Structure formats: C-alpha cells, structure tokens
Amino acid sequence: MWTALSKIPLLSALKVIKTLSAFGYEPIRRTGSHIHLLHPETKRLVTVQNHPGIAIGTLISILIQADIERKDFLSHLK
C-alpha cells in the first residue's frame, strides 16, 4: 500500500499537472484555485489545487483518484 511516505517530495501543482499529463490527463477547466484534469480514455476526473506546494496527503489522494501507483508517478518526475 502506501509505505515510505517520506520518499514523496513536496511538489508544486504545476509539477503534479505536468506529471499527470505524462499519464494522459488533460486539463479541462479551472474552478477557483482548483484545476480539473480528465483522462480521455478512462474518463477519470482528477482535481489538483493550484498551490505552490501540494501536501503529501493531498498528493496521495490525487494519485488514488488517478489510479496511478506511487512508484510509477515518482518514476515520471523529471
């Protein structure tokens, strides 16, 4: 499950969105400080708050929404 939480770095919303884009997610709208991304094939909707630092718990929630494993997400970070 979710072990070694300390290995997840503090990321900006822009970095999270760029990494989600590598998995096929596309921004579809912005509501206040939240950016909504949709995967065109799976129709999964993911919401990312537009903040300079995304909390680890929030990032984990985003990855669960996106159905992306932590290790896969971290391997796509550049």
Rank of each mutant, 00 (worst) to 15 (best):
D67G: 13
S61T: 12
A4P: 06
A22R: 15
P27V: 13
T31M: 10
Q65L: 13
K7S: 12
L45W: 06
L14G: 10
A13P: 02
E69G: 15
R30Y: 04
T19L: 08
S61V: 09
S6E: 15
I8R: 01
K78R: 13
T31L: 08
M1I: 13
K71T: 06
V48P: 00
S61I: 08
K71H: 07
T31C: 09
K18F: 09
I17Q: 11
P52K: 11
R70S: 03
P52S: 10
L59A: 06
H34K: 05
A55D: 15
V46S: 05
K18C: 08
M1R: 11
P27G: 02
L10D: 04
L74A: 04
K43Y: 12
D67Q: 10
R30D: 05
T42I: 02
L38R: 07
K7T: 09
T3S: 09
K71A: 08
H36N: 03
R44S: 07
S6F: 08
R29E: 14
P9G: 02
T31D: 14
I64T: 12
E26S: 03
T19K: 00
I64P: 00
R30C: 00
L63Y: 10
L5W: 11
L14K: 15
H39M: 05
K78V: 14
I35A: 12
E26W: 06
L5T: 10
M1P: 06
K7H: 12
F23K: 01
L37H: 06
R70M: 09
I28A: 04
Q49S: 15
S6G: 12
E69D: 14
R29F: 02
Q49L: 10
T19V: 04
Y25G: 01
L63Q: 00
V46K: 01
T31R: 15
I8W: 09
L77H: 07
L10V: 09
I60C: 13
V46H: 01
K78W: 03
D72F: 03
L37R: 02
I28D: 05
P40H: 08
S6R: 10
G32A: 09
L77A: 09
T3K: 15
